[in-house]
């Protein structure tokens, strides 16, 4: 019982769960390099190409997620986004901590909505970039 109390005290000192506001960018050409504002696109080019291969008239939200270290634990993200009728496709890049979400071009992508969905799985979305195909 003493062990339980000690661990409770030590671990309750640092709660972490404060998602920051996302940044929304659009992009025209240099998909694998930089945005027009100079911000680097941190996504695996090969993975990105494979993801967009069969997509047209689509917007891709590239979401930077914290705490996504385990395949098994990230499964819920895929399940939650697949319930959204505006989502065409989703991919999870564990190595870069990114979630790629393909939306219908007419859909307005709102970072707060994505952040809330990611939080439903217990992770934190910290920012986002959007690319129009």
């Amino acid at each position: 019982m003493k062990n339980i109390l000690l661990i409770l005290i030590f671990t309750s000192m640092a709660w972490g769960e404060t998602p920051h506001d996302g940044m929304h960018h659009t992009h025209e050409e240099h998909v694998h390099e930089k945005f027009v504002d100079g911000k680097k696109l941190e996504v695996d080019p090969e993975r990105f190409d494979k993801f967009i291969m069969d997509l047209k008239d689509t917007q891709i939200a590239i979401v930077n997620v914290q705490g996504m270290v385990c395949d098994f634990c990230a499964r819920g993200i895929e399940k939650i986004f697949k319930k959204d009728i505006n989502v065409k496709k989703i991919d999870v890049d564990l190595s870069k901590g990114k979630v790629l979400i393909a939306y219908n071009v007419a859909h307005e992508i709102i970072f707060e909505d994505i952040r809330d969905k990611i939080l439903m799985n217990g992770q934190n979305a910290i920012d986002m970039q959007v690319i129009d195909l």
Binding site: A14, W15, G16, C73
Partner: peptide, 15 residues
């Protein structure tokens, strides 16, 4: 009940 979770870029901690 999830008492505590700390998400970072490369780790996750849960209690």
């Amino acid at each position: 009940y999830l008492l505590n979770r700390k998400n970072t870029e490369n780790s996750q901690r849960n209690l």
